[in-house]
């Protein structure tokens, strides 16, 4: 889902950069207020954590494999602003070190996977946890659902950017990409729920970090 340069037109890419820069600047302020000078080491290590977690591949189908994106996990565990900051750092490193995603397209990638995905998943999870009445199973289901949705929504946002750039036709690309990511998202949801379940069992106090 990391859009390379050249796939989206210059106006779309520049708009993405401007939106991403604005949101990230606010996210820096919001997390700084919450954790002060602890922000730097903690956010740095947790961004490295998401990066490392993405190295655990799992088989999908026909010999291909996928990995966790982690936007939902970061948002659920640490809140939407901190999650956004972490995902931004992960995407910057993926772009500058691995050429995964373009330099000019970095803004659009941050918007898809760092902003839209974290916010949607955070509020879906919060809403689900609120309605769960404190039942563990229901909280886990809402976490999984939030992670699944984060993948689908990020893919849909990516399709719209490509459509506006005139690279793919909307009518076919939207159901195709949406459908494929609805399947990929199941793994993301299952893993996220698994992570939450383990943290609940061992360090439940860490789950209240997001508040």
């Amino acid at each position: 889902m990391h859009i390379p340069d050249g796939f989206i037109s210059a106006p779309v890419a520049v708009t993405g950069c401007v939106v991403a820069a604005g949101c990230v600047a606010y996210a820096v302020k919001a997390t700084n207020k919450k954790m002060g000078e602890k922000q730097v080491p903690l956010m740095g290590v947790l961004a490295a954590f998401i990066f490392a977690a993405q190295m655990l591949n799992f088989p999908i189908a026909g010999g291909t494999s996928g990995h966790l994106i982690g936007a939902a996990l970061a948002a659920i565990l640490l809140g939407p602003w901190a999650g956004m900051l972490i995902m931004t750092c992960v995407l910057v490193v993926q772009c500058l070190v691995f050429q995964d995603g373009g330099l000019l397209a970095l803004g659009a990638n941050i918007v898809n996977m760092g902003i839209i995905a974290t916010f949607i998943s955070y509020y879906v999870y919060r809403g689900g946890a609120f309605l769960s009445g404190g039942q563990k199973k229901r909280i886990l289901v809402s976490g999984g659902l939030a992670a699944w949705l984060s993948v689908v929504v990020a893919a849909v946002a990516c399709v719209f950017e490509l459509v506006i750039s005139g690279t793919v036709p909307l009518g076919v690309a939207l159901p195709a990409m949406g459908g494929i990511h609805a399947l990929i998202g199941i793994a993301e949801g299952a893993i996220t729920a698994g992570v939450l379940s383990l943290i609940m069992a061992t360090r439940a106090d860490l789950l209240s970090l997001a508040k």
């Binding site: 080491p41 903690l42 947790l46 954590f49 565990l77 893993i191 698994g194 992570v195 383990l198």
Partner: peptide, 25 residues
């Protein structure tokens, strides 16, 4: 089952990373 194992690994990794972050700070 595989996904569950990966979930447990990532969960463990998160706790270790978080604690490492606190130690570093």
């Amino acid at each position: 089952r595989q996904l569950k194992t990966i979930g447990n690994m990532i969960g463990t990794l998160f706790i270790r990373s978080y604690e490492r972050g606190e130690r570093i700070y």
